[in-house]
Simulated scan of single mutants.
Amino acid sequence: MRVLRSSVVAAVSAVAALTAVSGCAEKSDAEGSDAIKVTASDDKCEVSKSSFPAGHVKLAVKNKGDKVTEVYVYAPGDRIVTERENIGPGTKVEIAAEIKAGSYEIACKPGMKGDGIRQKITATGGGAPKKRDPELDKAVAEYRKYVLAQAEETIPAAQKFVDAVKKDDLDEAKKLYAPSRIGWERTEPVAESFGDIDPKVDVREDGLEKGQKWTGWHKLEKSLWDDKKITEDDKKLADQLMADLKDWQKRVGTAEITPTSMANGAKELLDEVATGKVTGEEERYSHTDLVDFHANVEGAEKSYELLKPVAAKNDAALAKELDKQFAGLKKLLDEYREGDGFKSYDTDTVGKDDRKKLSDAVNALAEPLSKLAAVVAK
């Protein structure tokens, strides 16, 4: 869910876990190379090059501000080409991406909110494109099938949830809420790449932009668990959620997917876990965070598994480390299973020590996963 949660930002900034999540531990070897240097501060977004050859592009990002920031590359219409969230003050990260010839904008978002401070950039064509490893073409094709399948599976699950809301069946709606979100959570970076769908279906109340109406899953979550009642407005919002999800289903097949966007998306999913699920902020009323957590990890692992043949060929040690960290995190998550789902993610059930273990495991995976895009781009 790509929204500002001020309490999360403050919490993440205050704990050591930010180091691994935001990329403090990432070594940016792009400095001094042909990378585009992006220097972010609380009031500026400076870019070293406004024009560069299309193809594999590296961004060497440095946050000189006092706020946690994020950096996006936008195509026309605010379609997200690549991004990195949760870049802590004083930290550096490197982002690898495939960018086609055309006009774009780089945006720095101090405080992780708003449209950001933007700079226009141009990727120039003319050169022969680098020949891609056939294994990567296969990975992209398989991932596209996966994304489409997740969207198709989400529609009937969401429809059951919506039907329960419209029938005033509070208990049934609660039961169906978390399962309706699994496909979305597995492939969230692709859905978010469109820019306009995520704010409609997955925004938190404290992530609303000025003048934005609160719609989507989390508005209904609050009604079900916090208000403990379903209103006529909720029933209308349920219909709107269904319409927005069907729009997502129709459009997801047109998403631009590349090997680097798959790798970066896997890292984004881990960032989602670190800043929303581990903290308990994502599902603050229902406490179904572990369902989302597991779906995020599943989606990240799917991208990695499809890219693994090339990643292992280019960097066997990294692939071995990723295998180890994915296995460790999944094993830890299994400790919190309950029946067909997971335990409630409240402080009585999953306390401070448990959350620290989960956070450490996420961070241990996020650090090597941040290197995957550069490895597959070799």
Rank of each mutant, 00 (worst) to 15 (best):
V190S: 06
D198F: 10
R144K: 15
G111S: 02
S7H: 15
D133T: 11
F293Q: 04
V9P: 00
N264E: 01
T258A: 01
A164D: 09
G114D: 08
T231D: 03
K175G: 04
K27Q: 06
T154C: 05
V362A: 07
A141L: 13
T39G: 00
I87L: 01
E256A: 07
L59Y: 13
D360S: 12
S303N: 14
K330V: 07
S13R: 15
Q212I: 08
W184N: 06
I99D: 01
G280D: 07
A255L: 11
V350W: 01
D137H: 14
V9D: 06
L372E: 02
P110G: 04
A300G: 05
S344W: 11
P134C: 08
V278I: 09
E305R: 15
E185N: 09
D78V: 03
K175Q: 14
Y72S: 00
L220T: 12
W248Y: 06
I117V: 13
T69E: 00
R186F: 05
L322W: 03
P309I: 10
L290M: 15
L322Q: 02
K138I: 12
G23M: 05
V47M: 06
A316P: 10
P179R: 03
D234N: 15
L224F: 14
L245M: 13
G280S: 13
N296W: 07
A11D: 08
I197V: 10
P189W: 11
A17S: 11
D202T: 12
A123P: 09
K166V: 04
A17Y: 13
V162Y: 01
T91S: 03
G23P: 04
E281Q: 13
R284G: 03
E105T: 11
A25G: 13
V3I: 14
V3T: 15
D244P: 00
K113E: 09
E205P: 05
K343E: 08
T347I: 14
A40P: 01
L329K: 04
D244M: 02
V73C: 07
K131T: 15
C24D: 09
K167T: 04
T124G: 06
L329V: 09
A361K: 05
G276P: 05
K167S: 09
G55W: 06
G276W: 12
L220Q: 07
E135M: 15
Q325A: 09
L237T: 12
D289I: 09
Y143V: 05
A327W: 08
G328V: 10
G90F: 08
S193L: 07
V291P: 00
Y104T: 07
T260L: 07
L322E: 02
R181Q: 04
A377D: 05
G299T: 06
T187V: 15
A191E: 11
L369Q: 02
A300R: 10
K343F: 09
L307K: 13
N363G: 14
A75W: 01
G65T: 10
V81R: 00
E301R: 15
Y143S: 03
T254M: 04
Y177V: 03
G195C: 00
A311Q: 10
